[in-house]
Amino acid sequence: MTFDDWYRQDRLPHIFCAGCGNGTIINCTLAAVDQMGWKKDDTVFVSGIGCSSRAPGYIVTDSLHTTHGRAIAFATGVKMANPDLNVVVFTGDGDLAAIGGNHFIHACRRNIDLTVVCMNNQIYGMTGGQGSPTTPRGCFSTTTPTGCVEMPFDLCELAIAAGANYVSRWTSYHVKELEKAVKVGLETPGFSFIEALVQCPTAFGRRNKFRQVADHVEYLRAHSLLKAKRDRLIEAGEAVPDDMFVVGELARRKRPALGVKP
């Protein structure tokens, strides 16, 4: 089997824009799920609202496409009621970090055995490009027309601080690394959080000088700072460039977890 076997063929074509990074993330996630050898009947995908949250609708397993921000709370019910099920949540930056922020930190705190994959396009794509809690300072959106003045969330630092057992960040450029990270997340008992920065040409790119999809992906690649490299910089007492974001495995630990299959 490959990731392709997990798609509902009768639902294609999908709604994602040409050049959208979400398909890459879904492929990587399904490839990791496939490598786990999980049965489709025992696997459930849950999501909230937004572009990323349409993903479960294209997957053949049981799936729950819920309300905005609440996916993790629904998934908590699924997993606690039947720990034998493998539960994966797809979410986005608006869904997870704005309206769903409280559910996110409490799921990390409980360390419930879910794997949450966040497609962070730094904008509200489905509603046409409004600023989100991860829109970088200075970036343009329909609700930050003169450039965003707020500081963005670092979702991974948030997950680590709140207690998640596994945390990593990659981008839509880092396909192999991302697939591997999701797999480790699926294998890790407790809460696993994988953030994937993605390009959104329609809502983010065209307002922020990424007219070409490849330009945005190249930006994500060029501004990724490997965790090991970041650590070396700190050790050497050198400055960490503030226009870069750290990628890699950021937390892997064995705190007591909830809802783990007996």
């Binding site: 729950l64 709370a73 998934a75 908590t76 699924v78 009621a81 559910h103």
Partner: peptide
Amino acid sequence: ASIIGAAWT
């Protein structure tokens, strides 16, 4: 949300 998720199992 949790009771709805549980109900589906």
